[in-house]
């Protein structure tokens, strides 16, 4: 899941300052789950903006609110056609993808990001999310016992642990587990400690370009020479 947090209210207010009629647009998937931009957060922000306007006015605004199931799918955005007809800007509480999808669908409409998209992560308990994936495009979790050193090691090193590991904790943050100690223990448990002996060359960021587009559908558009 994509995890984000709402931007500070002041920043939001600065962004919306030039626009009078603002649609606060929530997203019903990841942003709902991480309490950053679901229907509840939309109405909370709506209320907060109104209180702010009351106590320290900066321009006149009218707000409307709406939440779509997923901002990153253009079909869901068709539901917005009527809603954006009489507004001046969309304040999107979708992740960075959502903001761009809305901007793409409504090219004449300013779309403002209401959240800072932070990482790919999981819920550890109610109200707490931890980063688990850097979307590096070169997954080696089979070698590291299902524990990602890129996200969970402060340095993101591929051959750990480093000398900063103390009592299983990281030197940079004593509350944080050393990812490489976790990897060691997990490999020990799996009987695969030999994987610790291997050397993993540094990732080549030049030869692993980010894919930019993925397709699960078969490419049937193959041109005239094809059978």
């Amino acid at each position: 899941m994509i995890v984000a947090e709402q931007k500070p209210l002041e920043e939001v207010r600065r962004m919306i300052a030039p626009y009078q009629r603002v649609l606060i647009l929530g997203c019903g998937t990841c942003m709902t789950v991480c309490n950053a931009g679901g229907e509840r957060e939309v109405s909370f922000l709506h209320s907060a903006l109104k209180v702010a306007q009351l106590k320290s006015p900066n321009g006149t605004h009218t707000f409307s609110e709406y939440t779509v199931k997923r901002q990153c799918d253009p079909e869901f955005l068709e539901l917005l056609v009527d809603k954006v007809a009489d507004i001046d800007a969309v304040l999107s509480l979708g992740c960075g993808i959502g903001v761009q999808a809305v901007a793409e669908r409504f090219p004449d409409m300013p779309v403002l990001p209401g959240v800072n998209t932070s990482f790919l992560g999981m819920t550890s308990e109610w109200g707490v999310w931890d980063e688990r994936c850097a979307a590096c495009g070169d997954c080696r979790l089979d070698d590291t016992g299902g524990i990602c050193p890129i996200t969970r090691c402060t340095k993101g090193i591929l051959n750990g642990p480093c000398a900063g590991s103390k009592n299983g904790k990281c030197e940079a943050n004593k509350d944080m587990d050393c990812a490489w100690i976790l990897i060691y223990k997990r490999l020990e448990r799996l009987g695969q400690l030999e994987k610790m002996r291997r050397y993993y060359p540094p990732r080549n960021f030049r030869t692993i370009p980010r894919p930019k587009r993925l397709m699960s559908k078969a490419n049937t558009d193959l041109g005239e020479n094809d059978g």
Partner: peptide, 16 residues
Amino acid sequence: RQRVEKVRRTLSQIGL
């Protein structure tokens, strides 16, 4: 308490 803290954070961002 959870909800009060959340609102308090917002209040201080507004300057209250």
